[in-house]
């Protein structure tokens, strides 16, 4: 074995690692960074027992947009913040620090949020996700009841965000930065198509946003299709195209 010592006490055997990774790479196509990020966020609320979690990423103009949420309630949290430009996650990104709210519905810092939020989004915490030390997005979690966040909660979220940062770094090794950016941009774009399809379903079938979203996801899963493709079909249009690699996302 040829262990090499890292910056701290950590020791890795690069030869053994590469041999195992090569084995992992066999017979599988790359699934893309956004797919991995979605899975990571799905793990986070099961890991900590939160009601839900989500990711927001910043566009070039530093506007936060939602990338993924584990359920409709979390989606409303990210959508409300993207629409109003305010909220705990926006503040976490802007201030590059953890921001928490015991009950976001009664939080005077963000008066515009409650009317856009799902009623079961209450305690909220957001921590920045950084690349090269610069915030590029936020990891967000929420509880469906008011929640007193402890320092240990935010420390754990920072540690989890750090793992996400490492995944982004690894993905940047795999793809040129421009391709990674394209994948994230594509994911941000196809959310718009999904939002429009949900609105269409709500109007046509008199559904709530939650019912429409759940139904869309279920139908996509049952037919083994991407939600974005199904949403685009419902709207009678083509989904956003990922020029870099159309198979990578969704």
């Amino acid at each position: 074995m040829g262990f090499t010592r890292g910056y701290g006490m950590t020791q890795i055997d690069p030869e053994a690692l590469v041999a195992s990774l090569r084995r992992l790479q066999k017979d599988r196509s790359a699934t893309g960074i956004v797919h991995h990020l979605e899975r990571i966020v799905q793990v986070v609320d099961r890991l900590f027992g939160y009601s839900g979690a989500g990711l927001m990423f910043a566009e070039e103009d530093r506007t936060l947009r939602y990338l993924f949420a584990t359920d409709e309630r979390g989606r409303s949290l990210e959508r409300a913040q993207a629409a109003t430009g305010q909220g705990p996650c926006v503040a976490a990104y802007a201030g590059d620090t953890a921001v928490t709210s015991v009950d976001v519905r009664g939080d005077v810092r963000w008066p515009g949020l409650p009317e856009l939020l799902h009623p079961e989004v209450r305690g909220v915490a957001g921590v920045p996700i950084r690349l090269n030390g610069v915030p590029v997005g936020t990891l967000n979690v929420y509880q469906d009841t008011p929640h007193e966040w402890q320092e240990s909660d935010t420390q754990a979220l920072h540690a989890y965000a750090h793992v996400i940062e490492q995944v982004l770094v690894a993905a940047m090794e795999a793809d040129e930065k421009a391709v990674l950016a394209d994948q994230l941009q594509y994911a941000l774009d196809y959310r718009i198509v999904i939002e429009r399809a949900i609105g269409y379903l709500m109007g046509k079938h008199d559904l709530t946003a939650s019912q429409a979203f759940t139904g869309l996801r279920k139908q996509a899963r049952d037919s083994r299709r991407k939600v974005s493709d199904l949403a685009a079909e419902l709207l009678g249009e083509q989904g956003p195209r990922n020029v870099a690699n159309p198979d990578h996302v969704g």
């Binding site: 990774l21 991995h36 793990v43 995944v167 690894a170």
Partner: peptide, 14 residues
Amino acid sequence: VIVLQVLAESRTDI
């Protein structure tokens, strides 16, 4: 496992 999948897809390392 997810982290390892990302690393496995990292063409430059492999």
